[in-house]
Amino acid sequence: MKRLEARHWTFLGLFVVVTITMLLNIKLEMKVSPYTQDMYTYIESLPEGSVLIISFDHEASSLPEIRPIALAVLRHAFKKGHKLIGVSLLAEGTLIGYRLMRQTADELDLEYGRDYAYLGFRPQYIAAILAMGESIQQTYPRDYLGAPYEQFELLNTVENYNDVAAVISIADGSLTTHWIEYGQARYGVKVLGAVTAAMVTTYDPYLASGQMYAMMGGLRGAAEYEKLIERDGGGARGMLAQSSAHLYVILLVVLGNIVYFVSRKQGGGS
């Protein structure tokens, strides 16, 4: 059998640390960051009945992180009485988005077609974003389930971005950038991001310049949002696992430096 190398031990260590933490049921207190607060405040301050486009711009792989983020935003928006139109710019996000919208709408007994609608996937995201700026109906002549666009009360009131308060892009990659570069820059629609932690720094410049209106990021963002809406959606629990992984990485970095300095002292260098 092949001997385990240092990296294999680090992998094993991470697995053990995260597994143990997931088995524990600790509740950690946290402060809501200004970023998440801004996102919450925006949705909270919109007049009841405002139309929001929720774009599920993610793949299935990031579901453990995306799910709590999406649940928190959807629950809040539905609870405030906003009308939601779901779309997806990545094929894999389509069914996930539909399920999440249905689940959160059913919790409040909302009616499909009047309180929310799901349009589904369109290929070529840049083309789709630009096309919706001209006419959403022309881009999506039918909803996800195949019914004509004009059949629904909600959709009949929406022609393009002019009738929409904002687009919330739930993303695990750079698709939100396209919403900003084409939706916001070309058509002036407000873009908000609910993104995975790895993508947060990518969007910081857009947030600072005002091209992105607000952003919540990662499991931490989800956990903070859950605190604000006082509803658990798995973010806080995921945050616990993430925190333990962060601590473990810090430990590894410290250990790596000790090894480095010791070996340098012994003349081995690194």
Partner: peptide, 24 residues
């Protein structure tokens, strides 16, 4: 979806090994 999540999850392990090796 689970297969893709598995490959995505590798990222966490690789972050650990890269941090151990690279952050000096």
């Amino acid at each position: 979806a689970p297969m893709q999540s598995t490959v995505f999850a590798l990222l966490a392990f690789f972050v650990a090994s890269a941090s151990f090796r690279g952050f000096r």
